[in-house]
């Protein structure tokens, strides 16, 4: 599949966050979105997830048949979406039922993030990093090609970050796509980078540089 974004602009309330943002991404490619705090990284992710309407521009997806972009997207935002009273396994089983296109079982998905033994623990008992990893395990319960990750490495320790980089590399090798908004380097090879700062409108510089910096 292929995603192309052209002339995207984002407006939150009265403020224009960014404009003229363009990039394209094909199967097996990853895009790292960088930018200072408040530049609109999370808004861009929300737009790609179909949760926020663009003020201008278009997001197109090819090669996904009848499905909409939201239906092939596996989105892990900065909120984990875990219920404290449910066990890690129950949380993932629910995510699997919502996302459809089943892939791994909840327990297998937990094993991928190194939390196989947490399956029967209520999510409320887990630490912040562990909860983050359970949320990331959601990426494996469903066969959705586009991974949208908002600050995926936050609260993760060094070992978990390495592991995350490994699974992301594996996803790319299988022909998946990854778009991640992050401050920290992800440790992935051959990624494209997009800096939102270049598209933030300022009084002195109308317009912005060309969207893509490979």
């Amino acid at each position: 599949m292929r995603i192309s974004v052209e002339g995207l602009a984002c407006r939150r309330g009265e403020r224009l966050l960014f404009r003229d943002l363009s990039f394209s991404l094909a199967s097996g490619e990853a895009l790292v979105v960088t930018g200072r705090n408040g530049a609109g990284k999370s808004s861009l992710i929300a737009m790609l997830a179909g949760r926020l309407a663009p003020a201008a521009g278009a997001i197109r997806a090819e090669g996904i048949g009848e499905a909409t972009l939201a239906e092939v997207t596996n989105h892990v935002g900065h909120k984990e979406g875990l219920k404290a009273a449910l066990t890690a396994e129950e949380n993932l089983a629910f995510a699997g039922a919502m996302l459809g296109r089943p892939r791994l079982s909840p327990r297998e998905a937990l094993a991928r993030v190194g939390l196989a033994r947490a399956a029967d623990l209520p999510a409320g008992y887990l630490s912040a990093g562990q909860r983050r990893r359970v949320a990331l395990a959601r990426l494996f319960v469903s066969r959705r090609p586009l991974w949208l990750l908002d600050e995926p490495t936050s609260a993760l320790d060094a070992a978990s970050q390495v592991r995350l980089a490994e699974v992301m590399q594996g996803h790319l090798a299988e022909g998946g796509l990854i778009i991640a908004a992050t401050h920290a380097p992800l440790g992935l090879e051959g990624t494209k980078t997009l800096s939102i700062d270049a598209h933030v409108p300022s009084v002195d510089l109308p317009g912005g540089a060309e969207g893509e910096r490979a």
Partner: peptide, 9 residues
């Protein structure tokens, strides 16, 4: 158990 998980993992 949750605290021990990290070391174990």
């Amino acid at each position: 158990e949750a605290e021990r998980l990290d070391a174990g993992a």
